[in-house]
Nucleic acid binder design. Structure first.
Length: 880
DNA sequence: CTGCTTGAGCGTTCTTTGAGGGAT
DNA sequence: GATCCCTCTTTGAACGCTCAAGCA
């Protein structure tokens, strides 16, 4: 531990010294150094360290500085940040004092800590932080999926659907009879909905979602989530195949990503959002009721403010600024999900008249000025209703609908419909709008039939920016796999088995055959009665597969990024600049374009290079006459002990270069075949068994211990099998496991090994028994001796001489028993003659009991032996 | 505002095949 | 004298990734 600390300190100190403006280290390695500091009049500067970890280091450093009693010199430094704030007033003096105490010298400073504190200390997230953030991210995702499924189910509510239909003008009802649905045919419906339903304040966060939806229906307005859900319900009521789509505004995968930015930046961002032309949903001001409308990007957007209702939505920044915003969002979302799901089965209560005014605010739009004034308000005094509760990402489109239009393409098309903002087929606008509202488009999930499907690709043009912010795809796919199946069944995407067979999508075949869909009757009514949905499998051969292909195509046709940084980890494209040391482009083409003068190639051209030795581990060898694809400098030529040899030796230095080869330069490993029972060995007389591929032909690796003596005894040629390395005692040590022998000796060796192991086990068993016997004998002898001595001396205090005799006898008795060691105890050899001295102190005559073997008898169950003395005394002895 | 460079911090990867002394 | 066994000590440098700051 101590050495670890020392290491870290040294590293830290080295790094500090590398920087000219960094603190110099006060070291105990030489007092002369400290004197030199004065002589050269070089200033000492200290860096302000803020985090706890560094304080720990500093404490350790101080400790080292002050503990002069230790034998060897250790590096140490002094940092003023460990002083209390009060003490920092006299910082110079105090540090001088401390240093004086240590070294007896004077140190001058030319900088106060304030100047060095200008540079902010970067606190990096630890592995634990990242793990916690990932867990929060996952849990939040699951909650949001649950929430989405619940809303999706609410959209299938027949009462709500019926109520919506009752409001719909009769001429719009005809859309349900359209056989070839197109975007144009949807436009009037969306326009009507947009004119009649608006985003406004809502106290529904604490209500069951069905009740809230009914309330919003009656008010013809509600939260963005409710309005979007109403649009989905309307489309479903009209027999249109519809999904409820949501951006899962989930807590960041990166630790502390939300809380790093200072409050003033948050304020600026929020202000920007409200002054931006992309505002789409309302911001609620605490005082007064207002509504507003604005025209954004050609789309008319209504803004409605209302009395804030407190509760979950009233999130004061002052209250929460200490908390991680992502966690806060997660908690709020969790509360909403819990509140909503807890009453899932409850009856729909009558809508309260107090919260659901019968007056329609359709014609009460306030002027745009009002909105602007709201935006200029201090955020600390305002309360924001966001679709992501507690989120700063106000105005971002988070909920919309997707309607399947079978008349759009050959196979139909899922069409984005944001009825809240009256946007039809605006899938390309979503990312830009979300970005404008500082919202991240990490997960876009479509819900239908209690299922869910990730459709992020449809709305995301720059996947390379999104991908690093998402959870591990394996976990995400596993979570969605069963939900995707439900969604596909509900939207008519699951094809017949024959069709699946044609397409070759075995995974979907599995989805069909293993179908455990619990698609409710209600949802099937909402989704399944659509004529186009029920069209024959031959025409709609597989909606789900077609969509998967569409999304996959988008993934492969991403436009080239315009900045070269984006190519660093881009999944599709690469520029040579960002290749790592062991990578190369092969083949170098096709050229896809240029970015800042750098040629762009497909990522598939990137090949990983290895040394010849490294390829051997893969069971491959570099072909003869192959030239290295790349030569890099060895980073290990100057390792300890080799420095002097390597110095000034260009020849050796050139040998230190590492020749790298690509996989295309290799072939299957061709090792010499075993001949005449001889195992081909390497220069070390062994076989490196990195894998089975590394075994010479005709040999076999026997991974058993203690095989070497067996093979030696049988005279069979073998080689130790080295399976890897491990670091032990500060160095790399080869690890051997078993031996390599020719295949023909396999059975012979294994038989001999089995016999040898049996013999060894028997010997071990005998040895253990002997040890046990010996130890029992020692124990019993000690007890008997002790008792005899007690009987003889302790009950009859006598002279000092006798007492000394007692001690001497006791000592000799112990010695005797010790000397017996592990030899066979005499108790076993003496014709089973066991002696026990009489412990009855009342006997005047000393009697030594003798247990003869003739008087022994076994007690059946307890494995004990009964022994009798001629005097009548009997004892029971456990048989060993 | 965006993109690039640079530096720092942290985690991961790669490296690699003992020597000496005492007991038996 | 040969052989076996135990005990030393507990890598560390380079690289990759990410982020922040500064600059153009």
């Amino acid at each position: 531990m101590k050495s670890n600390n020392k290491k870290k300190i040294n590293k830290n100190s080295q790094q500090n010294n590398n920087n000219g403006d960094k603190p110099r280290r006060i070291t105990r390695s030489s007092n002369k150094k400290s004197v030199d500091i004065i002589r050269e009049n070089q200033p000492l500067k200290f860096r302000q360290l803020n985090n706890q970890r560094d304080e720990q280091y500093q404490n350790d450093e101080q400790h080292q500085v002050q503990s002069d009693n230790e034998g060897d010199w250790e590096d140490g430094s002094l940092n003023p940040s460990t002083l209390s704030p009060k003490n920092q007033v006299n910082y110079d003096v105090k540090v001088n004092d401390i240093v004086n105490q240590i070294n007896g010298v004077t140190v001058e400073f030319d900088a106060l800590p304030e100047s060095s504190s200008k540079k902010k200390r970067v606190r990096r997230a630890t592995a634990e932080d990242k793990e916690v953030a990932e867990l929060v991210h996952k849990a939040h995702l699951l909650c949001l999926i649950a929430r989405g499924r619940f809303i999706d189910a609410a959209c299938d509510d027949p009462l709500i659907q019926a109520a919506l239909l009752s409001l719909l003008p009769s001429h719009l009802l005809d859309i349900s009879e359209v056989t070839k649905l197109t975007i144009n045919s949807l436009a009037p419906l969306v326009t009507w909905f947009h004119q009649n339903f608006h985003v406004k304040s809502s106290s529904s966060a604490e209500k069951p979602f069905n009740s809230a939806l009914a309330c919003a229906l009656e008010m013809q307005g509600g939260s963005p989530e409710e309005v979007a859900a109403l649009s989905v319900a309307l489309f479903r009521a009209l027999n249109l195949t519809t999904r409820f789509v949501s951006i899962l505004d989930v807590a960041s995968l990166k630790p502390e990503a939300d809380s790093d930015e200072p409050p003033h930046l948050d304020r600026i961002k929020r202000k920007d959002v409200f002054s931006s032309s992309t505002l789409m949903v309302s911001k609620i001001k605490e005082e007064g009721t207002s509504s507003s409308s604005s025209v954004i990007n050609g789309n008319k957007v209504h803004e409605t403010s209302d009395q804030s209702t407190g509760g979950a939505q009233n999130i004061s920044k002052e209250d929460n600024h200490q908390k991680r915003k992502g966690d806060l969002e997660f908690e709020m979302q969790l509360q909403m999900a819990m509140a909503a799901t807890s009453v899932e089965t409850s009856e729909m209560k009558p809508v309260e008249s107090t919260s659901c005014s019968l007056s329609h605010p359709l014609n009460s739009l306030s002027p745009f000025k009002k909105l602007k004034r709201i935006a200029e308000e201090s955020p600390s005094s305002s309360h924001v209703i966001s679709t992501a509760i507690g989120s700063k990402k106000v105005g971002a489109p988070l909920y919309w609908a997707e309607v399947f239009c079978n008349g759009e393409n050959l196979t139909g098309k899922w069409v984005h419909i944001d009825a809240v903002n009256s946007i039809v087929d605006g899938e390309l606008k979503v990312e830009a709008l979300a970005a404008a509202c500082k919202s991240s488009l990490r997960y876009v999930v479509a819900f239908a039939g209690h299922g869910a499907k990730d459709v992020t690709r449809r709305y995301c043009a720059k996947w390379y920016q999104i991908s690093p912010k998402r959870i591990d795809p394996g976990w995400w796919d596993a979570v969605l796999s069963s939900l995707k199946e439900l969604e596909s069944r509900a939207t008519g995407g699951i094809p017949s088995k024959e069709v699946v067979g044609e397409v070759g999508q075995t995974s979907l075949t599995h989805a069909v055959t293993s179908g455990k869909s619990r698609l409710s009757e209600k949802s099937s009514v909402g989704l399944g009665k659509n004529k186009e949905t029920c069209s024959s499998g031959s025409s709609v051969y597989s909606r789900s597969i077609a969509e998967d292909m569409e999304l996959a195509t988008r993934a492969l046709t991403e436009p080239l990024p315009t900045n070269q940084q984006a190519y660093r980890n881009h999944p599709l494209y690469v520029i040579e600049k960002w290749l790592s040391k062991y990578q190369i482009l092969h083949p170098k083409g096709p050229l896809l374009g240029f970015c800042s003068g750098h040629a762009v190639y497909p990522r598939t051209c990137v090949q990983t290079l290895h040394t010849k030795q490294r390829w051997l581990r893969e069971g491959l060898q570099v072909r003869l006459n192959e030239l290295p694809s790349k030569v890099v400098k060895s980073c290990y030529k100057n390792r300890k002990g080799q420095v002097t040899e390597v110095e000034n030796s260009a020849e050796v230095a050139s040998e230190a270069d590492i020749a790298l080869f690509g996989k295309w330069q290799t072939e299957m490993l061709c090792l010499p075949h075993a001949v005449d029972g001889k195992v081909p060995k390497n220069e070390r007389g062994q076989v490196d068994v990195w894998s089975e591929k590394c075994l010479p032909p005709g040999t076999i690796h026997l991974r058993l211990p203690r095989l070497v003596p067996v093979a030696k005894r049988l005279g069979i040629d073998f080689a130790p099998a080295m399976v890897g390395f491990e670091f032990r005692n500060g160095r790399s040590v080869p690890v051997y496991e078993g031996i390599v022998v020719c295949q023909e000796f396999r059975e012979t060796i294994l038989e001999a090994y089995t016999e040898e192991e049996q013999r060894r086990e028997e010997e071990e068993k005998k040895r253990d028994e002997r040890q046990a016997m010996s130890r029992w004998y020692q124990l019993l002898s000690s007890m008997v001796t002790r008792q005899r001595l007690n009987d003889k001396y302790m009950n009859n205090p006598e002279s000092e001489t006798e007492y000394n005799d007692l001690k001497a006898e006791s000592k000799s008795s112990r010695k005797d028993t010790t000397d017996v060691g592990e030899s066979t105890p005499p108790i076993q050899e003496s014709t089973h003659r066991t002696t026990v001295h009489d412990i009855d102190g009342t006997d005047e005559q000393y009697h030594e009991h003798v247990f003869l073997t003739d008087d022994e008898s076994f007690v059946d169950d307890s494995m004990t032996q009964s022994k009798k003395c001629r005097c009548g005394l009997s004892i029971q002895v456990e048989e060993l």
